[in-house]
Design a protein around this nucleic acid. Structure first.
Lengths: 328, 328
DNA sequence: CTGAAAGCGCTTACAG
DNA sequence: CTGAAAGCGCTTACAG
């Protein structure tokens, strides 16, 4: 029926152990032997059974993406970046969604580890700073990489952008455009990135010697609806902001919607900027000024840290880039 | 180290075979025996090893989503729907992206089957009508379900909406709004849904006795950029349409962008409608009138057809719904 | 450089 | 209703 390593061994006149060596690129295989085996593999169109390799070996050839994020675009880009890197090594990606609010979070993750024993786990915000999750992975001895962590930088390899600098640059852009009353819609408080972006927003004001209206920093949950709510609040003020910098493109799109509903001209009456440069940023009207965050690359590198031979605590900072469009 | 079925057998004083019976809900296990085993399972927090089950059994406990679609929102919703259903059965979802234009498409799929032997495959457009893919699955004896197929309806279980009726209703809505010059941006030609939606668009005109301008049906590729290009073409005509019905929300968003750039009022100068009711439809300005396509439910049902005991050729038609918003 | 044996943790026949 | 044996298709020690 299905061709196995035995068939290849038979066809090439060697033992299955030698076939295994060739398949796994081990050393100490004679060049002619290797060639014979490879020819048989090609002729029989042999593909090693994944379950058997996992069971017999110590590796599962699987990496799990553990994330709980409100943005499908973010999650999908993460998946793609991780797959891009894992495919090269013949590693599968397990991508179940998790719910950080669920009492089952830890049990679900523990079940995943017990049943599938992933070779590595990639954590994205806010789970990359979730102490219970970190403790569980440590207890189970599972390697992991973190995307955009906020706490304990040396704990594990991680990838990130400089969120403080990025938010500072974006805010500075708004100040350069002449704005003095700039509001900020922050993301969920359990995301380290939220506080980092608030810090950058404040740093830009400090540098320019501009005082921030105490009511101008409001919090959202990184999604469209919360961006709309927050913008409604801001624009209802007696002295509304002339610019709104949202901590995500989805929230910025929500703010944009509210501005349109109120009949405001953008950027004439209110300028709006986002963060991320999701596809959405280019799809709305006017297109959003935003800060490009290379999600797919953050993911690719996180997978690379797991699969390659990176230092145990290697940190990779990727470049961000201001993208100025018509909304500011 | 890790607790195995042997530990459970030892702790409950039965053979591993009996533990296996309990785990798999087989009949002929004494109630007291079952209880003893379940208690040991709970106490030891035992979770069966996935690789071992796959290898020993005839099932892989995995379902593969095989799709090649330009919309991350669509793909992600598909994943979610399939996971929702599979999770209940402890089945994993394999979701690699495929490229229908790639010469490696069949080899990649064949490799997936050889290495992972999925219990079932879910095909989405345009691959649900790809003859080479269908032939491969048949040759390998893999069960599959199709989402929105266009050809050979009885070949396999499938889920879909009535695209012809849906497009007809949407077009009729535009006619009811007083439009007589309605253009249509069709999706990629290898999607059965594209032709179905064109047919519905035409049927509505026929029913109303309105003749369609020959240049009013243009084709896109279901994505934002192609929608923008097509709209540019349409709005450049000497006698432009007063309404544009795009075969997807992304294309409608592209058309919206072009209309804004040209300084047109929406829907005053040109009405724009989409198809799908993606999140995007509510995020753009003005919010899009569109036809709701329950992607997640289509996916859930496709998985249900695979995992449940559905007839070999069961067809499930799900409901669509017109969503009227400010763009028309 | 190569191979025979044992075993990964389960399930499938086959007995009783 | 329950169990002892064999085996799924690989890899890990261990020899040579």
């Amino acid at each position: 029926m299905t061709t196995t390593i035995k068939d290849v061994a038979l066809a090439s006149g060697v033992s299955i152990k030698t076939v295994s060596r060739v398949l796994n690129n081990e050393r100490y295989v004679g060049p002619s032997t290797r060639e014979k085996v490879l020819r048989a593999v090609a002729e029989l169109n042999f593909r090693p059974n994944h379950a058997a390799r996992s069971l017999a070996g110590r590796r599962s050839f699987q990496v799990a993406l553990v994330c709980d994020n409100p943005s499908p675009a973010y999650v999908y880009a993460m998946q793609q970046g991780i797959r891009d890197r894992c495919e090269a090594d013949g590693v599968r990606v397990l991508a179940q969604p998790y719910d950080r609010g669920s009492p089952r979070l830890l049990a679900d993750l523990d079940a995943l580890i017990a049943t599938s024993g992933p070779d590595g786990v990639i954590l994205t915000p806010p789970l990359s700073d979730n102490e219970a999750v970190l403790a569980l992975l440590a207890a189970r001895g599972i390697r992991f990489a973190r995307v955009s962590p906020g706490t304990r930088p040396g704990l594990a390899p991680s990838t990130f952008i400089d969120n403080v600098a990025a938010a500072r640059e974006l805010t500075t852009h708004l100040i350069a455009r002449g704005h003095r009353r700039i509001a900020h819609i922050a993301g969920s408080s359990d995301y380290a990135t939220s506080a980092q972006r608030v810090a950058g927003y404040k740093a830009a004001h400090d540098a320019a010697g501009i005082e921030i209206d105490p009511g101008f920093v409001v919090s959202g949950r990184y999604d469209f609806a919360s961006g709309a709510e927050a913008a409604d609040l801001l624009l209802s003020r007696a002295e509304p902001p002339t610019a709104i910098f949202a901590g995500s493109d989805e929230m910025a799109a929500g703010a944009l919607m509210v501005a349109h509903r109120r009949g405001l001209a953008i950027p004439g009456d209110v300028a709006i900027a986002g963060f991320g440069d999701d596809a959405l940023a280019s799809y709305v009207w006017p297109p959003l000024t935003t800060m490009r965050q290379p999600v797919r690359e953050l993911a690719w590198n996180a997978a690379d840290l797991l699969l390659g031979d990176a230092e145990a605590d290697e940190q990779r900072e990727l470049a961000h880039a201001l993208v100025v469009r018509a909304s500011t």
